[in-house]
Design a protein around this nucleic acid. Sequence first.
DNA 1: GGAGTGATGACA
DNA 2: GTCATCACTCCA
Length: 182
Amino acid sequence: MLHALYGKHKLILQKEWFQRDVLQVAPELLGKKLCRQFSDGRIVKVAITEVEAYDGQEDKACHAHRGMTDRNAIMFEPGGCWYVYLCYGVHWLLNITTGEKDYPAAVLIRGIDDCNGPGRLTKHLQVDGLFKNSVADKKSLLWIEDAGPVPEHEIIRSARIGVDYAGEKWASKPYRFNWIKV
DNA sequence: GGAGTGATGACA
DNA sequence: GTCATCACTCCA
C-alpha cells in the first residue's frame, strides 16, 4: 500500500499525492475524509464511500476525450485541483484531478457517509462552481485528509454510472469503486 | 417511468 | 448565432 505524502499539516493530502495514475488514486480515496469549512467557520469532515475514475483522452466517457476545452482544461494540469461542473443544469458534480501535467484524468466523488449521489453531496456540503479549478487545500475551504487504509475486501469494483453514451467498451470498464463497510 | 434545467461544446 | 446533449434527482 502506497504511503500518503504529508505536508506541513500532517493529515491533508497534498498535490503530489494526486499526481499518480487515476486508477491507483481512485480506490485509495475511499475512506479518506472530505473536509469542508463553511462560511461561518464550521468544519465538516465526512468519509468518502464511492468514486469513479475518468482516465485520459482514450476514455470515451472522460470529458477530455475530445481534447482540451474551457471546461476541462484543469484536467490537463497536474493533479490535486477541483474539477466542478454543472450537470443537467441542476447539479454540481465534484471531481478531483489526478495525474501528471498534460494527462487529463479525474476522480468523481459520488458518495460520502450518509449522503449518496454526486449531486446530493455537493448540495449538502454547499459546493458549487466557485470551487472549480481551485487547489484542494485548506485555503480553498475544501480539502481531503488521510484516514488510514480501507481493507481491500471492503472495496467493490463495478461499471460507471450514466456513461452508456461512451460505447460498451468504455461504459463497461470497472472504474467505479464502492466502500462497503463490514 | 418521466420532467426539469442551463452550461457546454459542436457546428454553421 | 443555433441546437442537441448531459458523469442527476425527485416525484408519481
